[in-house]
Simulated assay, not measured.
Amino acid sequence: MQETRLDTARIRAARRVIDPIFLDTPLYRCEALEPHLGCAVSVKLETANPVRSFKARGTEVIASRLADHGPRAVVCASAGNLGQALAWSGRGRDLDVTVVASRFATVAKLDRIRALGARLELVDGDHEPARERAAAIARYDGIRLVEDSLDIETCEGAATIGLELVDPVPEFDTVLIALGGGALATGVGHVVKALAPEVEVICVQPLGAPALTLSWRGRRVVTTDSTDTIADGVAGRRPIPAVLDDLLLVADDAVLVQEASITAGMRMLLHHAGLVVEPSAALGIAAILEDRDRFAGRHVVTIVCGSNVDVDAYHRWVGAAPAHRP
Score class of each variant (00 low, 15 high):
36 H>F: 15
206 P>C: 04
278 E>Q: 03
188 V>Q: 08
171 E>H: 04
123 V>E: 14
127 H>R: 13
21 I>M: 12
66 L>G: 00
203 C>A: 15
198 E>G: 14
79 A>F: 04
31 E>Y: 12
230 I>M: 12
286 A>N: 00
221 V>M: 08
300 V>W: 14
207 L>E: 15
110 L>E: 05
139 R>N: 07
196 A>G: 03
52 R>S: 14
263 T>E: 15
131 R>C: 15
315 H>I: 11
143 I>E: 00
117 G>F: 04
270 L>T: 03
168 P>G: 00
234 V>S: 02
43 V>D: 03
118 A>T: 02
178 A>T: 10
311 V>M: 14
227 T>G: 07
161 I>N: 10
185 A>P: 07
146 V>P: 06
18 I>Y: 01
275 L>R: 05
197 P>R: 02
275 L>G: 02
121 E>W: 13
202 I>T: 13
314 Y>M: 04
3 E>W: 14
62 I>W: 05
314 Y>W: 14
281 A>R: 01
176 L>H: 11
108 A>K: 13
179 L>E: 10
161 I>K: 06
21 I>A: 14
92 G>T: 01
178 A>L: 08
294 R>M: 11
145 L>G: 04
129 P>H: 08
5 R>C: 09
115 A>Y: 11
209 A>W: 08
50 P>H: 06
74 V>E: 02
323 A>L: 07
188 V>S: 10
57 R>M: 02
295 F>Y: 15
223 T>N: 12
197 P>W: 07
69 H>F: 12
226 S>G: 11
153 E>W: 12
156 E>I: 06
35 P>N: 11
30 C>A: 15
22 F>L: 05
315 H>P: 00
238 R>V: 15
208 G>F: 05
79 A>L: 01
4 T>M: 01
165 L>W: 12
258 Q>L: 11
264 A>K: 13
2 Q>C: 12
177 I>N: 00
46 E>K: 00
173 D>Y: 13
82 L>F: 09
131 R>S: 11
60 E>I: 00
262 I>T: 00
